[in-house]
Simulated scan of single mutants.
Amino acid sequence: MVDINGKLSVVMPAYNEGSCIYVNVLKTIEILHKFVDNFEIIVVNDGSKDNTKLEIQRVIQCDDRVRMVSSESNHGKGAAIIAGISETCGEYIAFVDADLELNPDQLEGFLIKMVDDKKDAIIGCKLHKDSEIEYPFIRKFMSMGYYVMLLILFQLNVKDTQTGLKLFKAEAIKPVAHLIRTAGFAYDIEILAAIHRRGYSIGQMPVKVVYVREKGSRRIRIKDVLKAFNDTWAIFYRLNFKKYYD
């Protein structure tokens, strides 16, 4: 067990995950039991068109540590994460993707590093030298390009902001959560830029990724990439010209 002297809140956004969300939430509970005593899971149904909401309700009946936030329409992953954060009551808040490509058991190492290194946030990094991942060249090229852009714009010395597995102290993320305006994939950088602006420290951890999506499935489209690029510049403007996060 990791001695964190508090509760761990896990926020799990879900969109059209009806085929796996029931099993994956139960699996997450089983995993968390191994290294933390006190936890909760906030599953956010982001306007799913399938039976995701019904499957979340089914798992809630199995364990009262699971709660749901639900929207009738799809607002994007960033909006789902922020909605989940608003419902947490733990001293530590983690983000976990519903498909469990990033196994929640890795949060044990995140918690240990946070305590040992006295960090306010620990983020997973697919580009870390110790990460175990089969990463397509084009995705690695795009990630490196985005890393250089973020380093120049925000002086964040982190190589990868987009990996779904993240851990924060509630005292660092909750005061800025209501300021986050990016609903899409660039929400990560807005959160990190906001807490960095307020003097909180960020550490990185290697991750192991096990792909579970069907071969050929595309979760991120070109228009998503373009929107993330535009959102990043909007964050830079709010950060440096409007002093929005101060």
Rank of each mutant, 00 (worst) to 15 (best):
R197C: 06
Y237V: 01
N51R: 15
H33I: 00
L26Y: 05
Y147Q: 15
K223V: 01
I123F: 02
V148Q: 12
M205W: 03
G216D: 03
I82P: 00
L167T: 06
N240T: 11
L179S: 06
K140E: 11
I152H: 09
T182H: 05
S131C: 07
D3V: 03
E87V: 03
Y245G: 00
A98S: 15
R198M: 06
D37A: 03
I29M: 08
M205Q: 12
E17T: 10
L107Y: 09
D64R: 13
V43M: 11
I93Q: 05
D37W: 03
I29G: 05
A228E: 11
N24C: 09
V11Q: 12
V69T: 11
S48D: 03
D120H: 13
N103L: 04
N157H: 15
Y15F: 15
Y146I: 01
G76K: 05
A172M: 04
V66N: 07
P136M: 09
R197S: 01
K159S: 10
D63H: 12
G203L: 02
K242C: 01
R65D: 08
V225L: 08
H75L: 10
M68Y: 08
M149Q: 10
Y15P: 04
S71P: 00
N103M: 09
A228V: 02
K223M: 06
D224Q: 08
V210R: 15
G90N: 08
Y211F: 12
I235W: 07
A186S: 04
N240L: 03
Y245D: 11
S70C: 13
M12P: 04
Y147P: 00
A177Y: 08
D3M: 06
Y22K: 14
I220T: 14
V115W: 00
V23A: 12
A80M: 12
A228C: 01
V59I: 05
G164W: 07
F110G: 01
T232L: 09
I93V: 09
Q61A: 11
V44T: 10
G47S: 06
M149F: 11
G164T: 09
K49W: 05
Y135M: 15
A194Q: 04
C62S: 05
Y22E: 13
I122G: 08
R221D: 00
L8I: 06
I31P: 05
L100Y: 14
V43F: 11
G164H: 12
D97H: 13
K243D: 09
N230F: 10
N157R: 15
A121K: 07
K49T: 07
A98G: 15
T88G: 01
C62H: 14
L127I: 05
C20T: 15
I82V: 10
F229K: 01
E40W: 10
L150T: 05
K169Y: 10
G203K: 04
R65V: 02
D231A: 01
I123V: 11
V210C: 02
I21E: 15
V176S: 07
E171I: 06
W233K: 13
G6D: 12
F35I: 05
